[in-house]
Design a protein around this nucleic acid. Structure first.
Length: 465
RNA sequence: GCGCUCAUCGUCUAGCCUGGUCUAGGACAUCGGCCUUUCACGCCGACGACAGGGGUUCGAAUCCCCUUGGGCGUACCA
């Protein structure tokens, strides 16, 4: 499917990729893929002070983890200063921009005075028409039209318009000669042929200030789609104090990328009553028409539920690789233990995160060297000797260590002892895992395997004294 | 302050454009029950919202206005 659509994600590398940025990137990606358009990645690093290579790497890594591939880029604005310089010159030449010699201190004073007198904190235009060119530092300002209105039809929010008198003359080039965001974003979106700008809600105000620049530069104005903000539980803009906001922090906490993608897309977008979406579903079903207009609250509980869902339905082989990595990071050697995919299968229904799964898998690889005190007092008391011995007997004679085979052996233990499973299982569980919580005993025995099971049972027997 | 913008269960949302089918549907969370060898899973059920006020209309969650509340912006940050 061919399309003229060209969208872009333009993060500024001043930190990791956060929840909000990831969703914006996702929306861009989905629309591009759905319509067969082009997805461009551009790094907005015009703020030399705060931009870092580490941030760029972190963002790239996070996008990769989420599965958001781009078709062009990454382009770095810091490498395009020549272009911006020529565009500033063009604006100056056409009379759409001018040098401003006001110092930051003066501007600050003017702002305060304006607010003081009940006015608007806008640039007063002191240098707009000055003829002289003093030999002092200056910035370049864009000459914003002073009458009329600037309007556009947002693909998500609908018609938006602002009186030009509300706008002021934006600085497009700093004293140090570097261009500013509101200017380079216009030049780049235009020069890169972006047809639709999908970005955060916090940019709607910038949009009306940017449109006159497109026009002054003779560029075609692209379409815009502003996605609502993501807020914290207190309805304030999402920030660190609301908990983890870094996408990669969730990977560390044992989340699956598909859970994150699924959660993010549903925060602001919907498709009837559906909740579960694979990336392919989304590429097929996503549309700007179904994106809501109001801000949404980030809900960690729902993300966790989604993660639980994907762990439950995930491929054991794949999860095994992930869990092995986590265990390795904790110094647990899984090489000699039971088959990891088999281990995973016993844990899929009882783990909400991969980290939880790793915790639950721990006992498979390291026999308990102590038993939970309360559990031992109850299930490994001396009166359990007969039960354990009988279990060892039947398990020793058992050849088929499958779930069903193990069940058969326990049936035999129950028959011979006349005890119900409730009098046998808990004791075996404590002997095998050290505590009272674990997957089904049959599964544990089957996965642990004959040697390990017998060894642990003998050890428990010895501990009875 | 000013400008832009938003407003359905605690949260994410369906419905709103093309008023009646809405005693407002789904999901997460919460609470209760069932299942059960532990912990979970699963299943069943409960609780729970059209911000308020005016209109328009036979009829409004749906259309209009006002109020209130929220978000964003108001930088030589992006």
């Amino acid at each position: 499917m061919m399309s003229e659509l060209r969208v872009r994600f333009a993060p500024s590398p001043t930190g990791y990729l956060h929840i909000g940025g990831a969703r914006t990137a996702l929306f861009n990606y989905l629309l591009a893929r759905k319509e067969g358009g082009v997805f461009v990645l551009r790094i907005e690093d015009t703020d030399v002070e705060r931009s870092t290579q580490e941030s760029v790497d972190a963002i790239l890594q996070a996008m990769d983890w989420l599965g958001l591939s781009y078709d062009e880029g990454p382009f770095y604005q810091s490498e395009r200063y020549g272009l911006y310089k020529s565009k500033v010159a063009e604006l100056l030449e056409k009379g759409h921009a001018y040098r401003c010699y006001c110092t930051p201190e003066e501007l600050d004073a003017k702002r305060k005075a304006a607010i003081q007198s009940g006015g608007k904190p806008r640039y007063d235009g002191t240098c707009r028409n000055r003829a002289d060119q003093p030999d002092t530092p200056f910035v370049i300002r864009f000459k914003t039209p002073c009458d009329g209105t600037t309007a556009f039809v947002d693909r998500i929010k609908g018609a938006i318009s602002v009186e030009n008198t509300e706008l002021d003359d934006l600085i497009i080039q700093r004293t140090d000669g570097n261009p500013t965001y509101n200017f380079v974003v216009v030049v780049d979106d235009a020069e890169m042929g972006i047809t639709l700008v999908i970005r955060g809600d916090d940019h709607v105000n910038n949009t009306v200030r940017q449109i006159p620049m497109y026009q002054a530069l003779g560029y075609e104005v692209p379409e815009f789609a502003h996605v609502p903000m993501i807020l914290g539980a207190d309805k304030k803009r999402l920030s660190k104090r609301h908990g983890a906001t870094s996408v990669m922090a969730y990977r560390e906490m044992g989340y699956l990328p598909e859970a994150m993608v699924n959660y993010l897309v549903r925060l602001g977008w919907s498709c009837g009553d559906e909740e579960i979406f694979s990336m392919n579903d989304l590429i097929e079903k996503f549309s700007l028409e179904n994106v809501g207009r109001s801000a949404g609250v980030f809900n960690p509980d729902k993300l966790l539920w989604l993660n639980e869902h994907y762990i439950k339905t995930g491929d054991p082989e794949r999860l095994a690789v992930l869990v092995t990595e986590i265990l390795a990071g904790q110094g647990v050697d899984t090489a000699l233990g039971p088959d990891m995919p088999a281990v995973v299968k016993t844990l899929q229904d009882r783990a909400k995160t991969l980290v939880e799964m790793a915790e639950g898998a721990h006992f498979y690889f390291e026999a308990p060297d102590t038993y939970d005190e309360q559990a031992a007092a109850k299930f490994l008391a001396s009166d359990k000797r007969d039960v354990i011995e009988l279990t060892i007997k039947h398990l020793t004679g058992l050849a088929d260590y499958s779930h069903d085979g193990v069940e058969t052996a326990f049936k035999a233990v129950m028959e011979e002892s006349g005890l119900k499973f409730g009098k046998i299982g808990p004791t075996v569980r404590v002997a095998l895992v050290g505590g009272t919580v674990s997957p089904s005993i049959y599964d544990v025995v089957a996965v642990l395997g004959k040697d390990a099971v017998l060894t642990r049972l003998q050890k428990a027997l010895a501990s009875l004294g």
